[in-house]
Design a protein around this nucleic acid. Structure first.
Lengths: 126, 126
DNA sequence: TTAGGATATGCATATAAGAGGATATACTAA
DNA sequence: TTAGTATATCCTCTTATATGCATATCCTAA
């Protein structure tokens, strides 16, 4: 992947927040909507962008579309995604987003029918 | 600096090449023109962009405008600039650009009047 | 089959980049 | 002052992003 394309993926705060969340595990579109507090269209389009650029993959699970981070091959992408996690205390959004994600996952462990298994299994919370 | 702004600075191949060159030392606009083989307008505008975003500073030296990298404060910027240097073997442009820069600097050490001192002093070549 | 939830896409619009030509500005040298 | 070099800015055009509304598609459940 070309360097400028890679950085373009990271040059939008919504996409950064999405990638930061995906570093924790897969999520459905509706979860991003809830966590980022953004419209369905907006979230869906940013996910399409990341998919088109090869950073994420989508897998249908019944009604839901589960997005996952594709194991990043470019060392600069790996470094930056890890940096997002490492720097989360400097960026209030990141920590809040991850906290919101954990609350959602806790809901799922109490009512497994609410979303695909892949979202809450292999999760470190709940 | 906001993360998305930081990544926007890096999301253009000309700006990446400019930053890669600035990691080696200060340069005048005309040197970037020569090394990148781009028009004066294009180079000047990208330098303005980086200046506006606070990544580089400009200092007039007679006829020349010398651009330097501002000591980066954001850990992600530091990491990415260092990564550019470390990854230069994967990106033919970077190595070629640095080689062209060294050839230009050698010219200066033979004819010091050709550009401001700050460009060729403290240089590791020539 | 019908209704409804989840998601994607088409269309329109606003704004930001990117590029190029022409010109203005700043400086030097004669 | 004049000419010439280096650089910045203005104007215009094209393209890419970002956003919202409406609607289409895919799936489930009844």
């Amino acid at each position: 992947m070309e360097l400028d394309k890679l950085y373009k993926c990271l040059s939008d705060i919504q996409r950064i927040r999405i990638l930061n969340l995906l570093m924790q595990g897969a999520l459905c579109v509706c979860h991003f909507q809830e966590i980022l507090d953004e419209s369905q269209v907006k979230v869906s389009k940013q996910l399409q962008y990341l998919k088109r650029m090869g950073l994420v993959s989508a897998q249908r699970e019944g009604m839901w579309m589960v997005y996952s981070l594709i194991n990043p091959s470019h060392p600069l992408l790996v470094a930056n995604l890890n940096a997002l996690v490492a720097l989360k205390e400097f960026h209030p959004y990141f920590t809040e987003d991850i906290n919101k994600r954990e609350i959602i996952l806790k809901r799922f462990t109490e009512n497994k029918a609410e979303c695909p298994k892949v979202v809450y299994q292999n999760s470190d919370c709940g």
